[in-house]
Design a protein around this nucleic acid. Structure first.
Length: 110
DNA sequence: AAACTGACTAATA
DNA sequence: CTATTAGCCAGTT
């Protein structure tokens, strides 16, 4: 039998994917808040690490583009990522201000 | 087991 | 506003 809890058994990554999967269109969360939800208050970087490793298989179910940095900043990284993310957010009606998400209007708060 | 890496963050200058 | 610094986390070497 597995004595480890589901999340732990699946690993930190799966826990991140499960959390992000619950973010509805038109709303966003931050790396830090996701980490906090997972019980790792300072695991923001680890969350980013998990999204970076997001398998293509899950790309359809996990709205990675709804995860932004503190203050609504879109995390810079090599590749088309940032541009695509901004484009998708805009397509969902998310208001972008100088490249930053208007958190007051779109941040998902529990 | 130590060192390195990076889709982070908050604090300083 | 931008640039730098230090702390933190999980996975990889």
């Amino acid at each position: 039998m597995n004595a480890t809890p589901p999340d732990a058994a699946e690993g930190f990554f799966a826990a991140v994917y499960a959390a992000v999967r619950r973010v509805p269109a038109g709303r966003v969360v931050t790396y830090g808040s996701v980490a906090r939800l997972l019980g790792v208050p300072r695991g923001a970087r680890a969350v980013g690490w998990a999204l970076r490793a997001l398998p293509r298989r899950l790309e359809r179910d996990v709205p990675w583009h709804r995860v932004v940095g503190a203050g609504g900043r879109i995390a810079a990284r090599p590749g088309p990522g940032p541009g695509l993310q901004a484009r998708r957010l805009r397509a969902e009606g998310v208001r972008l201000r100088a490249g930053r998400v208007d958190m007051r209007a779109h941040e998902l708060r529990p």
